[in-house]
Design a protein around this nucleic acid. Sequence first.
DNA 1: CTTGACCCTATAGGGGCTACAGCCTTTATG
DNA 2: CATAAAGGCTGTAGCCCCTATAGGGTCAAG
Lengths: 132, 132
Amino acid sequence: MSLTIGDLSKATNTKVETVRYYERIGLLPKPPRTSGNYRNYGEAELGRLSFVRRARDLGFSLDQVRALLSLSDDRDCDCAGIDRIANEHLGEVDRKIADLKALRRELKAVIDSCDGGTVAECRIIEALAPRG
Amino acid sequence: MSLTIGDLSKATNTKVETVRYYERIGLLPKPPRTSGNYRNYGEAELGRLSFVRRARDLGFSLDQVRALLSLSDDRDCDCAGIDRIANEHLGEVDRKIADLKALRRELKAVIDSCDGGTVAECRIIEALAPRG
DNA sequence: CTTGACCCTATAGGGGCTACAGCCTTTATG
DNA sequence: CATAAAGGCTGTAGCCCCTATAGGGTCAAG
């Protein structure tokens, strides 16, 4: 199995530039090159990139992905570390949802207070302005 | 009323650098300067920056804030444009909440599938990895 | 008269890509 | 076999929205 960067990017739904970016920041190892200096990937790299993409889709930061990768390489290690990262991330997601809901409530209130007319009468602007 | 950039930044809970940044990108007008080349703000600038911050807190993008500002300057104009921007933003917020909830469900499922053990047995890693 | 708090500009960095520009290599077609 | 299109390569700049320096100048208090 020999894949070009384009093959890999299609297979993982990742832009080519993103693959190179991941390599540059050390998230993916530098692959061997062909005689024409093309990156030459195999099954292992495909798996690793899929892992990265899946974790990213679940909202893990690149640093968290890096940590997950290095933990997952140690097959005999306790999986508590992995659990910790995942739960920490879950907490972040919960906080974000709560924040957005609060924001939504406030925004909705601002919008609902306005029933048209000119800008001078607009409650949205009034609600945004401090004392005016 | 004569305010330094520091006064303004305290009054609006904005970092000094951020105020200068807003000026640089044209969100705030360039204020007059003192003889010592300090920015010299008044009531109007305080109001405008408060508006910007409030809108930002509600999650409007800088472009949206810019639009809101220019609409709000036209006091005789219909406020439909303002309503449109606000509702468009509400839609974005709703989409974000929905996306995060979906993500949360998936993440939770991944986490719940694991009941400890070594990394080799860890369902979190398994759920992230593609085939293997 | 000096200390320290504040101000000034200009520039770089962050996260996580994305998008060029300006080349070289491979593959498909005439 | 020649060529053109598609894809690869490096390097760098841009996106959003600030934030954080470095290296200076100004001002009020002691």
